[in-house]
Structure formats: C-alpha cells, structure tokens
C-alpha cells in the first residue's frame, strides 16, 4: 500500500511540524523531540519547508490596545503600576529589596515578608481582593525555591520573583496552574531571570484560587506546542491566601 512508502520517522516529524497531533501520540512525539536531536532537526526542516505557506495568510491589523498591553506588561509592570494599586507599589519595594539581597532562600523569606508588610495599612472603603502567594520549589531532592509567585486578582497578574540562578538551561520556562485533578492549564511562558508582572488571561483568572498548584515546565521556544507540559516539570508550589 502506498502509505507504507512514508517512513515512520518522517511521518511523525510531518505530523508534529503540522501541529496535527493530539493526545498520547502528541505526548510521545514531544518526548522524542527532547531526546532525539535528529528527530528535532527533521521537525525543524519540515517547519521550514511549510513556513512559506504563511505568505498566503492575509495580514489583519490588531487593535491598538494590544501594543499598549505589551508595553504595559513589559516595561511598566513593576515600575509604574496603576496609581490605584498600593499592592503594586509594595511589590516594587519588595523587588528593590530583592535586588539588594543575595540570592537564596533567606531572600525569598524576606520578599514574602515584605509582600505581607506592603499590604495597605489603612483599609480603603472596599477591601482589596485577597492576595495569593506560592513558593515554587524545585521538584528535585534539593527543593530549592526557584521563584516566588504572588497573584494579585485586582491586577489580574502574577508577580514573579526569581530567587535562584536561572535553571532553564536555554529552554523556555512555562507556568501552569493545576486545579485538583484537572489537566494543567498554561499561564504562558515566563522568565527565570528578572522579576516580572505576568498577566493572566481573563478566562483563567478564576483558576487561581487557594490550594491550586502553580508549576513550571521547560518547553521549546515559544512554549509548549500542545497545551500540555511537554518538558520536565522543574518546580511546583501551592497557592495560599496571604
């Protein structure tokens, strides 16, 4: 039969480059992508062969609000948060403190304390929604705290404060939330170098509740191509109300 003319390796590389796999076959291909450089090169070649097809996609001008959001997220997330957010100012102070301290678990504790102290001392008429925090610790024996995450529902953003050396090994760290026994939901790719305000898509904000787990996996450039973690889960921690 003609289909037999397609060698298995080629078939999987094609399927993966197209993005047509799902479920267990996808999981298997992803695993292979990390372990088999030859396979990864095949996938890259197919992606390159297919990429001229994007030429035929008609450009669509995005609304101007997108650039404003990108800019806000990247450049004003920590320095000039909305004036109404006392929390954000507190985080800014915590970040400065973080910068002034040596790396390590003790500085994480200091940041966590600073975050607690930084909550508004005089309650405003409307109580601000509770902050949630998680210490995301490495899943290996060392249990070193990799990053401290503080979720501010008022801003719809997680403030991420890395506390250890970058352990991403050139891969892309991706943040996940896991509620109970549900599948992990991607919160997007993150950075293990610098403190950052990481925006949470509106639809996922309700998932960030006390008891939910935040986890970090290492993914190929651009993040997991599948919607599920494909690389090793290097760190995890539980969100608790602070």
């Amino acid at each position: 039969m003609l289909a037999d003319m397609v060698p298995d390796d080629d078939a999987v590389a094609i399927d993966f480059a197209l993005g047509a796999l799902d479920g267990p076959s996808l999981r298997a291909a992803e695993l292979r992508l990390r372990r088999d450089p030859e396979f990864a090169a095949d996938v890259a070649r197919w992606q390159a062969d297919l990429s001229p097809l994007i030429d035929a996609v008609a450009p669509v001008a995005p609304p101007p609000t997108i650039w404003a959001s990108v800019e806000r997220e990247l450049f004003r997330g920590l320095v000039a948060a909305p004036a109404s957010s006392a929390i954000a100012r507190g985080v800014g102070a915590a970040v400065n403190l973080w910068r002034g301290l040596a790396f390590g678990a003790s500085s994480v504790a200091a940041v966590a304390i600073a975050l607690l102290v930084a909550r508004p001392a005089t309650p405003v008429a409307e109580a601000p929604p509770a902050l949630l925090a998680a210490s995301i610790a490495s899943t290996d024996a060392a249990k070193a705290i990799l990053i401290t995450a503080t979720y501010d529902p008022a801003r719809g953003a997680v403030i991420l404060t890395p506390s250890a050396k970058d352990a991403s090994h050139g891969l892309t760290p991706e943040l996940w939330v896991i509620v109970g026994k549900d599948k992990p939901l991607s919160l997007g790719v993150i950075d293990l170098h610098d403190p950052q305000a990481h925006r949470i898509p509106q639809a996922l904000r309700s998932k960030l509740t006390g008891g939910a787990t935040l986890a970090i996996s290492l993914e190929p450039a651009g993040g997991s191509p599948t919607g599920q973690p494909t690389g090793p889960v290097v760190a995890a921690g539980t969100l608790t109300v602070i």
Partner: peptide
Amino acid sequence: EFDATRASPITWMATIARNRAIDRLRARG
C-alpha cells in the same frame, strides 16, 4: 535566542505564533 543562521526571523516568529495559538486551541479542550 534567535539564530539568523538557522531560521528566517519571520519563520521564527510565525512558529512562536502558531505554537501559542495551537496551544490555546488545544487548551479549549
């Protein structure tokens, strides 16, 4: 991380865009 010797810049960016979009599509379940 972009390596101009390995991919054209637009291919690199388009791959990121496709991956993120497919990611979201699969997450819809």
